[in-house]
Amino acid sequence: MFITRIFYGIAYFVVLIYEIIKAELDVALRTINGDVKPEIMEIETVLVRPISQTILANSITLTPGTLSIDLDSEKRILKVATIVKRDKDAVIPFEPYIKGMLE
């Protein structure tokens, strides 16, 4: 449905801005107390289309504290560098919204 896609798009932007503000405060706090230990992890995504994978990787990099290094489009695996060790769901909270928006 076209209408639900627009709804998911708006929700995606709201969630993205909320996550950016949250991560921004988190990283700013970490620069003060020095609790920084960079890690590289691999994340498997459910997205299939290359455009949605690119948008997901871009949103990950836009959030301070997480950074996408590489994207394997066929195996659907993202290499992500995080500022401390995090679990998978904390890195990509906007994945269902992109899935609803583009797939």
Binding site: V27, T31, P38, I40, T63, G65, T66
Partner: peptide, 10 residues
């Protein structure tokens, strides 16, 4: 390097 890129994001 990754830590510095994260901080650059701020």
């Amino acid at each position: 390097v990754y830590a510095r890129i994260h901080i650059l994001g701020v």
